[in-house]
């Protein structure tokens, strides 16, 4: 009877666990409270795994450089971009965005970029953090 795993697990006990303890080592009683404390500087947060360069996170929009050409709307697979005729600018719904960054590729003025920010979960899809304009 060959059990190669037994050797493996005995060796592993003495090694560091591979888990990244993000955001805390054990689940805090309330995550929202914990994050508030982190914001107030009372608790420390374990950082998430670092993102590589050119990571595609939450979209960033430079409103002033935009010329309102609507090209980004034509290539957005998720229909996440809306044109506001009054201001001739766009509004991006992050909750709908699929982070393909195709709008960045097509933008003739280069006013759309992707940031490395990826902690975007919230309960309200129209929250301030979920709309870029």
């Amino acid at each position: 009877m060959a059990l190669p795993m037994i050797r493996e697990i005995f060796a592993q006990v003495f090694k560091r666990p591979a888990t990244n303890p993000f955001p805390a080592r054990f689940l805090p009683p309330s995550v929202t409270e914990f994050l508030k404390k982190v914001g107030a500087g009372e608790a420390t947060i374990n950082p998430p795994v670092a993102t590589p360069p050119n990571f595609r996170g939450k979209i960033v929009y430079d409103r002033d450089g935009c010329i309102g050409c609507n090209l980004c709307i034509r290539v957005c697979p998720a229909h996440a971009i809306e044109f506001i005729p009054e201001t001739k600018r766009i509004r991006i719904y992050v909750a709908q965005c699929i982070f393909c960054s195709q709008c960045n590729d097509i933008c003739p003025k280069g006013v759309l970029t992707m940031s490395p920010e990826f902690l975007l979960a919230t309960e309200d899809r129209f929250a301030e953090s979920q709309i870029v304009e």
């Binding site: 993102t51 590589p52 050119n54 990571f55 595609r56 699929i98 982070f99 393909c100 960054s101 195709q102």
Partner: peptide, 12 residues
């Protein structure tokens, strides 16, 4: 994969 494409799952 994330390093090459910019995303882990939906490479694009």
């Amino acid at each position: 994969i994330e390093y090459i494409t910019g995303n882990r799952v939906n490479y694009g």
